[in-house]
Nucleic acid binder design. Structure first.
Length: 488
RNA sequence: GGUCCCAUCGUCUAGUGGUUAGGACGCGGCCCUCUCAAGGCUGCAACACGAGUUCAAAUCUCGUUGGGAUCACCA
């Protein structure tokens, strides 16, 4: 008996957070960061992370959008403990399937005095009175309709909404984990619609009902919800429920004055992945946008984050998304990959631009430390497929002490040597050409530089002369040198 | 406009009354070097402004300025 009680208490105190995106077909970076923080709060406290789909706005529903949500979370390995696809004890996890629940609670809230029925006609597009338009607080005449009359009109089939009552005077105070104490006058709150005429709830109502019913302990959301939080508290209060712990997070910005947004054409998680960013790197980067561990460590795996994350170290001020730093971090992750893993990731990119048979394994080795996004592969390997038409002036290099004349001589010498090389490895080729330079009284660069140009036709290449030779293979290497000799 | 919130290098940030204001990205230089990278070393670079409290303020208070959010049958 005692034991059961103890267990139950623990269970009720368990941390439970929820990621509640609406299926708009776009995984916003800011949303993903919120999801991460929700996940980390739950997991750092040994709790559960719940996925809930907020589709109460049927106008915004996009086909296939939930798959994007599932796939994104899977790609970054944020596994959810309950959700539409896997179920759980607090389902359903899709708001449109919870319509009846909201209806019941909405009517109950009216009985409790926290809301009233409203029959006002909804103005679709209210005329804007120019820039001076000062929103006037809506004073709902329906608030004065008696409950019995309202019920009668509803019974007669009249269209209605349930609208919140704000009867309190004075100041609402609540505590937020990141912003601290927030005070807002009840006068500022408007009596918003809770249940729409289509019978579905607005976010303002659904989130309260769901968060309570699903026993969510920490509500994490954008700070744009701060000003309406007192309204939610009023609903909790009317029902006699305990409000959750609030964690409002600042937005992720594109620049000092604009949020990162789909509307501005800013990159979504999918876009970044498409551009060659690694999911792990993206996740690591956004974790640090508004949070820091208090140490100087910056590279974190998800499991490391679970260990060190605390919501108390979340920042209050907005953070600008810096693609340059993400790119650096992505490069770091690419370099940290095993040879094999990098090669696997590179393969699809090779397939897009290479048909020539070359040593792809070795190509991957030289490429790995040289690129910061997988998309940079293409620009680095283009010369392999087709030798570009290059200017002979490329053979001039002061530091290497070469020019067209020296190139002509050393390429001819190199050709003779390479023709007879049997072991076509980087080490061996380098040793052979170095020996050649020494024998001929040339500087290493006077041999190697022209060879590299002859093989690539480019000023900069991923790898030196002998590395390119290994990638291209013996036959193509000899061909390209012969070709260069003809041009010179 | 009312209300709420925010303010340290260009960017992400550390800092909770006494620091040469630290780190990371980026940028410059040097080393290494078969080009370019990677790696190592190094340099430049910030407390928005003004009062006040205090022996002492990036840190506390007030104001100013700047920015953001919110005021939907969207979330």
């Amino acid at each position: 008996m005692q034991k059961t009680f103890f267990f139950r208490t623990i269970k009720q105190m368990k941390a439970r957070t929820r990621f509640a995106p609406s299926p708009t077909g776009y995984m916003h970076i800011g949303n993903l960061r919120t999801a991460l923080y929700e996940y980390l709060i739950a997991k750092s406290l040994g709790g559960d992370f719940i996925l809930r789909i907020e589709d109460t706005d049927q106008k915004r529903y996009v086909e296939g959008a939930t798959d994007i949500i599932y796939n994104t979370l899977k790609q970054v390995h944020m596994e959810w403990d309950e959700g539409p696809d896997i179920g759980g004890n607090f389902g359903p996890y899709v708001q449109s399937e919870r319509k009846n629940i909201y209806g019941q609670y909405a009517h109950k809230l009216v009985e409790l005095g926290g809301a009233h029925y409203c029959f006002c006609k909804h103005e679709e597009d209210e005329a804007e009175d120019g820039e001076d338009a000062v929103p006037v607080k809506f004073d709902d005449p329906c608030k004065h309709i008696s409950l019995s009359e309202a019920k009668e009109r509803i019974a007669n089939g009249e269209s209605f909404v349930v609208r919140q009552n704000i009867n309190k005077k004075g100041t609402s105070v609540f505590e937020d984990v990141v912003y601290g104490k927030i005070e807002i006058d009840y006068d500022e709150l408007d009596e918003g619609v809770l249940l729409k005429s289509d019978g579905l709830p607005t976010y303002n109502f659904a989130n309260v009902i769901d968060d309570h019913l699903m026993q969510i302990s920490h509500v994490v959301r954008g700070n744009e919800y701060i000003s309406s939080t007192p309204k939610y508290n009023l609903i909790y209060e009317a029902f006699g429920w305990e409000p959750p712990i609030y964690v409002h997070v600042p937005p992720v910005m594109k620049d000092a004055q604009h949020k990162l947004s789909k509307r501005n054409g800013d990159a979504s998680f999918q876009d970044l992945v498409k551009k060659g960013y690694l999911p792990d790197a993206i996740l690591n980067y956004i974790a640090l946008l508004g949070w820091n561990p208090g140490t100087e460590q910056e590279i974190f795996s998800l499991s490391e984050l679970k260990k060190v994350f605390t919501a108390e170290r979340l920042n209050k001020s907005p953070a600008i998304f810096d693609i340059t730093k993400l790119t650096w971090m992505n490069g770091y992750y690419i370099r940290a990959l095993s040879k094999e893993d990098f090669h696997k990731l590179a393969l699809p990119y090779y397939a897009k631009c290479l048909t020539r048979k070359v040593n792809l394994e070795f190509l991957s080795e030289v490429l790995q430390p040289r690129i910061e996004t997988l998309a940079q592969i293409e620009e680095n390997v283009d010369f392999i497929e087709n030798l570009p038409n290059y200017n002979m002036a490329l053979y001039q290099n002061k530091k290497m002490k070469t020019d067209e004349n020296i190139a002509k001589v050393s390429l001819a010498l190199a050709l003779d040597v390479l023709k007879n090389v049997e072991v076509w490895s980087n080490e061996n080729l380098f040793a052979e050409l170095k020996a050649l330079a020494e024998k001929e009284g040339l500087k290493n660069g006077q041999v190697l530089y022209p060879v590299r140009i002859a093989l690539s036709g480019k000023e900069t290449t991923p790898g030196g002369a002998t590395e390119l030779a290994v990638i291209l293979g013996k036959i193509e290497t000899l061909n390209r040198i012969k070709q260069a000799l003809e041009l010179l």
